[in-house]
Nucleic acid binder design. Structure first.
Lengths: 254, 254
DNA sequence: CGTACGTTTGATCTTTCTCAATAATGGTGG
DNA sequence: CCACCATTATTGAGAAAGATCAAACGTACG
């Protein structure tokens, strides 16, 4: 029973998020917590998965930040999403036999590993957990769709504003930031790979957003000084995040 | 029982694809086919879902082609994926309460509608079907990730070559094309919105691919005249499609 | 047979990239 | 605690891919 005590608290955010849309019974939750798990601290820059890996376990990010990435044949990198505490990293590795992208830590992090087979079996045995997994996967896909739009059809200014809005809202939904004030755990180079720009241009855009009074920046700390305007510039609507509660109203009120 | 006869054959490709990775028992398959379904013919340009819709049913594309799209606040469109016969259009609408993107038909099509609640209930009652749904959703997400890379980190030439490769391989996996010869059911404007380019530039790139002997084009018909070279230009690897069978070997042999 | 839509082509313009150099910053060992 | 090194951030100047604008040409089809 020791395993329980080790992981129950760290998984709180994850379990809460998993149940956001359809609560699990206490048996379901117990069954989840009874899974074999391993808790690990890893340094910034560590890979949780590499492209081409044959996955053996699934990873949950308990504390810290990570990002998904793919690299083209010419060596340029595209960041596909940023993972925040409480995110499941590896539902794809639960069922797909080879990893199609890599996940790398942005900061020193605490992660939980669960053997792939154990999770597979659990989902078959407890359909409600399967439904929660589908839910979570669908939301991730929705975020990815918006990411395509961002990279594909917005100019540099809107792209950067958008990624900032998304990050802030996701953090706030997990209680990890408030009032548009947060630590952005990425270098400008990483921001560039997330927005499909160059680091140089990211720098210029960030400065111009600051010059126009939309954000305030002290190194990696970001403070939204004009949510409304930033949201406008970003063409941001939180609908695609499928968060519970009011739609854009909530944002407008910030 | 009449319902069965109407939809069993049309759903063949869909059911086969759904089971590609983990076969369903005959009870599972029967339970699926026993769902209430409606078969519809719709014209090109019809919307299967609109952004913001509250979904009431889920859609399977039996015959014909469609695409997913989002539109920015400034009115530019991003196409997110192309749906081919046998694709489930609407697993997201099975669990998400509001549609975050639209799906529009490229051609006159045959679609099957299944009430959302019936599918939800089925997935809870038949966990193996839930697993198949997760599988299918994960593969869709993988394709979307590659789409981000395509739009974000490849130049116009590679982007267009890549989308052609992807389309050809997916069609061939369903037995809908062979030897790199297929009908591309999109205008150059749609191709532009899929690759985040302008129609003018798409036109120029297509012409240059033809001039270099990589493809042959008669209106919308595409013929790959040099698979190997096109794949090279496209930076294409079929791994992300998570198709069964050999990896890139199969493509190389075409 | 004319109208609407899609394709093709040319000329010019703009955003963003590239290359290059300098300045901060943070972490590390002495 | 300080000097040093490796990252990261910032700035400038010039180049390029792709966008925009505009017009002509095909082709399908009502």
């Amino acid at each position: 029973m020791r395993g329980y005590q080790v992981v129950e608290y760290p998984l709180k955010a994850f379990l809460q998020d998993l149940q956001e849309h359809s609560p699990l019974s206490s048996e379901d939750e117990k069954a989840f917590l009874a899974l074999p798990m391993r808790l690990r601290h890893l340094d910034a820059g560590s890979y949780l998965v590499r492209e081409g890996d044959i996955p053996t376990h699934c990873c949950i990010l308990v504390d810290g930040y990570a990002f998904r990435q793919k690299v083209t044949g010419h060596g340029s990198r595209q960041i596909l999403s940023v993972c925040i505490p409480g995110d499941a990293i590896d539902f794809q590795n639960m069922f797909l036999d080879i990893s199609d992208h890599a996940v790398q830590l942005l900061t020193r992090s605490l992660v939980v590993d669960i053997p792939r087979e154990a999770l597979q079996e659990l989902v078959l045995r407890r359909p409600a957990i399967g439904v929660a997994v589908i839910h979570s996967t669908l939301i991730e896909a929705s975020i990815l769709r918006e990411w395509v739009v961002n990279v594909g059809r917005r100019d540099a200014r809107a792209r950067i504003a958008h990624i900032l809005c998304e990050f802030a809202v996701r953090l706030e939904a997990r209680g990890l930031a408030s009032r548009g004030n947060f630590e952005l755990p990425m270098t400008q180079e990483q921001l560039a790979d997330a927005t499909s720009l160059t680091p140089v241009h990211v720098n210029r855009v960030l400065k111009s957003l600051q010059a126009e009074g939309l954000i305030n920046r002290q190194r990696r700390n970001i403070q939204f000084t004009d949510w409304r305007a930033l949201q406008e510039v970003a063409d941001f609507s939180r609908r695609y995040l499928h968060l519970p509660g009011e739609d854009d109203v909530a944002v407008a009120a910030m």
